[in-house]
Amino acid sequence: MNARLAACLVTFVLAASPAAAHTGSMAGGFLGGVAHPVFGPDHVVAMVAVGLWGAFLGAPAIWLLPVVFPLVMAFGGVLGIVGVPIPAVETGIAGSAVVLGLMVALKVRPPLWLAGVLVGAFAIFHGHAHGAELPAGADAVAYSAGFVIATGALHLCGIAFGLLARWPAGRLAVQTAGGAIALAGIVFLIGPR
């Protein structure tokens, strides 16, 4: 009996690993965070649409939206983390692609505050989805930095493409991209979840 007990103890100890304060892998946590929005097509099209619309609206929206979006998204993320329910989060994310895509396609130019409120409202849905899936553990910092930066990079992609709107042919290309994003959003809305 004692021998069995000793054997069990030895097995447990051999299977143990050292406790460390910073267990998270910088690269693993960061890349996991980057992958989260990048591999979610509904997130990708909505983020690109934010950048496209910002570029379409011109200054100061072109830089205000990428500054405001992560901060409001963090607020939505906090709601997701503490468990405050938001109804129809996935519908809100798909809806953001539809609405923002249409804004670009139809060349809608609302006042800056209204554009900010609209984008901010959608940012809460995106943040809630990210926050609810944020992993506990020491590499949560790298993970959250990864997905915030990936989100910002998608905005910048949209802005870069949206800058083509300075030329007539480019404007048509940007509006077409907006229409494609709205269509993709409709597919996400009616598709299986």
Binding site: P66, V67, V68, P70, L71, M73, A74, F75, G77, V78, I81, H130, G131, L134, A140, V141, S144, A145, V148, I149, G152
Partner: peptide, 10 residues
């Protein structure tokens, strides 16, 4: 804003 958002979430 990216730094603040990451820190607030964690």
């Amino acid at each position: 804003s990216w730094i603040a958002a990451s820190a607030i979430l964690v």
